[in-house]
Amino acid sequence: MQVLISTLSQGLIWTILTLGVFITFRILNFADMTVEGSLTFGGSLCAALMLRGVNPFLSLLIAGVLASLAGLVTGILNTKFKIQAILAGILTMIALYSVNLRIMGKANLSLLGKSTIFSAINNILPALNSNFVLKTFIIGLVICIISVVSLNLFFKTQIGLAVRATGDNEQMMRALGGNTDFKKILALMISSFFCGLAGALIAQSQGYADVNMGTGSIVIALASIVIGEAFLNFIKLKNKILSSLICMILGSIMYRIIIFIVLNLGMNPSDLKLFTACITAVLLGMPKLKKFKLKLGGNKNA
């Protein structure tokens, strides 16, 4: 039971990252590599702030807000300097590596003995005092719900609709009077905000920030997105965006469950990244693979 809840809470915390990547990858149609940098940026900022005695909730928020600046940089590189999306993201990500080392002063900051948002909940729910896993679950769930609800509301506003349209048909959006450069920058900033927030949450839940904590995070997020989209077959709300957002939660949790299972089956943890990359590639290629299968099976039906 404890293990299951722990897996679920991991999934919930990483959902925040998935939501961030979902905004760029699916809504904006922008392959944003900033993620790997902004996740670590959020984590190291949060750790550094907490070690200077800043309240853990406030640290979380500041980390997210400052991380959104990473999206601003990528957005300006892409829209104003006309650098390709993927390269713009990589440039920001690499630059952030040095920034993160500067912030932390070393490769790794431990939060040992510091009070985190997870320990702060003791004051509200004293019954949970010793149950760290359940606390993580509750906090993760609350933050996920707040994020999903606020993103759902945002994408229904006039500006939110324009952001979605920019990703769907940029030329149309310009012809309808939309400043698409601004919309892209805005979406990248919101995405980076969530990535930074995720980094800060991860740092607090694992008790340290590490300069390499973001490595491979984009693939984890992409895996969660494509796994989550499989749930769209079951979650068919009238509100399409809300369905997608809920599926992102399910996808992130499902990804953690899959990882938990393969580790228990005896997979070497160092092979996890290879495994994640493979399932992401297969799931992303699924539509094409299905067509191939249809071709092969075509004779049977003929």
């Binding site: 945002f154 229904k156 500006i159 349209a165 769907d168």
Partner: peptide, 30 residues
């Protein structure tokens, strides 16, 4: 295919067009 956004609903497309000459805000599109 160039004049409308395929993954948005018909009403969402129209609501975008309705704001062609206005500034977009954080009030609901529809």
């Amino acid at each position: 295919l160039k004049g409308s956004a395929p993954n948005l609903t018909i009403e969402e497309n129209l609501s975008l067009a309705l704001l062609r000459d206005k500034k977009r805000s954080f009030s609901f599109g529809i």
